[in-house]
């Protein structure tokens, strides 16, 4: 691990001010992903701003019947919240499908959204990776790419976003609240948080450098059933090969793109009376494979109709 200096932020305003003034600074809260990457020297911040103790760890009701989840709330506490369990079960199911009990006790809502890809070529510093070393190439394109993206990939990067929680938030139509480096608060849909890789896979979000996520806001729950289903190589404690969040008529897919993938073509087909199988076929019309990840297309084709049926109480 490279040497760095450390401070504990006194306030969110102080945190973004410090981030704006300090070269190569990063926020840390749970640290479960960042410290792992720092040990491998994939992340090499010169300064860490600990935002984990900021008073942003509450889950509160919003006036319109939704919930505001403070960015520093642990994954465990979000999943266990009685209101989340009763009104947004897809979110609890997604969170408990990720990591282990120990990791969920440490990881925070904000950091969960800022997780970096688990692509093996991103992690292996002896291999090319445009995300880790821009311009070096993509080792996954013609490599061991069973875990790679089938939607929205580019010739520069076929990595996927690892979050389960973000997939549920995408289906629920959540928003993200932030504090910019100049101290301005803003809010925008979570679907506008993450980027597709394009030519610059090292830029993973639309956040301004030094911008801090302060909360995730859930609108009132959509009408209709909710469910999160995840397919992976082990029954527990493994990254997904494909996952789906159903929230009423909304569908989001996980582990298949550089961002949580809202399946808008499938949603439109469902809304116009298509069967679940026809709907996901419409979405998969734009899927592509890179040799070893074609299995994900088959998985998604079977997983999504099963999840839609489950959400609507028609078997599992």
């Amino acid at each position: 691990m490279r040497a760095f200096t450390y401070e504990r932020a006194e306030s969110a305003q102080a945190a973004v001010k410090s981030a704006a003034e300090t070269p190569n600074a990063k926020f840390i809260a749970g640290g479960t992903n960042l410290l792992d990457l720092m040990k491998l020297e994939i992340e090499t911040p010169a300064h860490l701003i600990d935002v984990g103790r900021l008073p942003l760890a509450q889950v509160e009701d919003t006036p319109d019947g939704g919930l505001r989840i403070g960015a520093m709330t642990t994954n465990s506490h979000v999943a266990a919240d009685a209101r989340v369990r009763a009104r947004y079960p897809v979110l609890t199911q997604a969170i408990v499908a990720g990591g282990s009990g120990q990791l969920r006790n440490k990881a925070r809502a904000g950091g969960n959204l800022r997780q970096r890809s688990r692509c093996a070529y991103f992690y292996d510093t002896s291999k090319p990776c445009n995300k880790r070393a821009p311009g070096s190439g993509c080792g996954a394109l013609e490599g061991l790419n069973r875990n790679s993206a089938i939607f929205g990939a580019s010739h520069a990067c076929i990595a996927t976003h690892p979050s389960d929680m973000a997939v549920a938030l995408a289906a629920l139509g959540a928003s993200v609240e932030t504090l910019s480096p100049s101290g301005q608060a803003r809010a925008f849909p979570i679907l506008e948080l993450h980027r597709l890789p394009g030519e610059t896979p090292e830029v993973e979000t639309h956040l301004i450098p030094g911008e801090l996520i302060t909360a995730v806001v859930l609108p009132p729950p959509p009408e209709g059933g909710q469910v999160y289903r995840k397919v992976r190589d082990r029954a527990s404690y493994a990254a997904g090969l494909a996952s789906v969040a159903v929230a009423g008529g909304n569908l989001a897919l996980g582990a298949v793109a550089h961002k949580p993938w809202r399946a808008v073509d499938a949603e439109a087909a469902l809304a116009s009376g298509a069967s679940p199988a026809e709907a996901i076929a419409a979405e998969l019309a734009q899927a592509s494979e890179n040799g070893r990840n074609g299995c994900k297309i088959s998985l998604v084709r079977r997983l999504v109709p099963a999840a839609i049926d489950q959400a609507n109480g028609r078997g599992a």
Partner: peptide, 15 residues
């Protein structure tokens, strides 16, 4: 009181 992985945390974060 809550279980975590001590390897994925910095000592200074636990002051």
């Amino acid at each position: 009181g809550e279980r975590i992985n001590a390897c994925l945390s910095l000592a200074v974060m636990h002051d």
